[in-house]
Design a protein around this nucleic acid. Structure first.
Lengths: 160, 160
DNA sequence: GAGGCTAACTTGACGCGTCAAGTGATGGGG
DNA sequence: CCCCATCACTTGACGCGTCAAGTTAGCCTC
């Protein structure tokens, strides 16, 4: 990220690669978030939570499972769900099986919300990522990213 | 990001690529931030600000220039500088040339701070990114990221 | 040279994301 | 059968990052 470092540690080609990768990591989420925000009035975590619940059986999921599936802390998820609840898209209910769990239940309004928001979001991913690349580039990007993720070793990551 | 989308819009290979890219974008910043936080007690923006000031003439820079060079809003930078000031690494002073500008001036303590923090950070970038890739992969990643950034069209981006 | 425009900066409020501390429900051991 | 450990969740506080609104300094025009 700095000339200081680059001069000491990264050669010119590495620096250029790093600048591109860094810029992508900064701006891709910004653009995707902006699309969701403008077209659906949702933040990405809100979208993701609605999407995940919509795919669960009975459109119902335990918050702790949702957090794990979303790479989100329970802490953060709790606040997201609170907003979704205020908007009328999700309801909370204690799990009748084990009262310690809280269920997130998608309302009909929530179902409509995610149904209407999804196409635009996928279209944005396609526009910003896949339309920009050739098939060879797409594969190379996937391979390099997969390799880096392997080294990063995120919790819960399952190797293909 | 969701099966819902994938089934409708992305084929299996695209989904896999997207998952890898997304995971990389989520976890690479987390790991780099953690390294800085643990080894130097700095957030990434704090590190970046110190780094940029250290490279400026007289180790002094106008806050608005620093913000532009850092892809950061003045708003956010202002708070970052406030923390760096409290830590004794940076001082604020009005620009004698034009009193509307505020200068950020690196203190000796700030200079020592960034000097000691830089090697570890570069090492982390090398470990997580470049050590994981072959030269071909590095080039392919750089090309794909550059292409995507071109489409994202971030403000102030200069094409090579 | 006084009034008002503009540019630089700060501050408030909000969402993302974290950790730490607190609350409530459950289940297991004495 | 009761107490306490544990688990799920919530809340507070903090930093990242945003936009909007307010403040101050400089400049430009009349």
């Amino acid at each position: 990220m700095s000339i200081n470092e680059e001069a000491r540690w990264l050669n010119a080609e590495e620096s250029e690669t790093w600048l591109s990768v860094w810029s992508m990591m900064v701006w891709l989420p910004v653009r995707l978030d902006a699309q969701l925000r403008e077209d659906a009035g949702l933040s990405h975590p809100e979208y993701h939570a609605l999407s995940q619940i919509s795919m669960a059986p009975e459109r119902t999921i335990r918050l702790s499972e949702l957090a794990a599936a979303s790479n989100m802390t329970l802490s953060h998820l709790s606040r997201v769900i609170t907003r979704l609840e205020k908007a009328g898209w999700v309801q909370r209910a204690p799990d009748p099986v084990d009262g310690r769990y809280t269920l997130g239940i998608l309302t009909d309004a929530g179902w409509e919300k995610i149904r209407s928001a999804a196409p635009g979001h996928v279209e944005a991913v396609r526009r910003y990522v896949f339309d920009a690349l050739t098939e060879d580039q797409r594969r190379a990007l996937g391979d390099a990213a997969a390799r880096i993720v392997e080294v990063l070793d995120p919790p819960g990551f399952v190797r293909a």
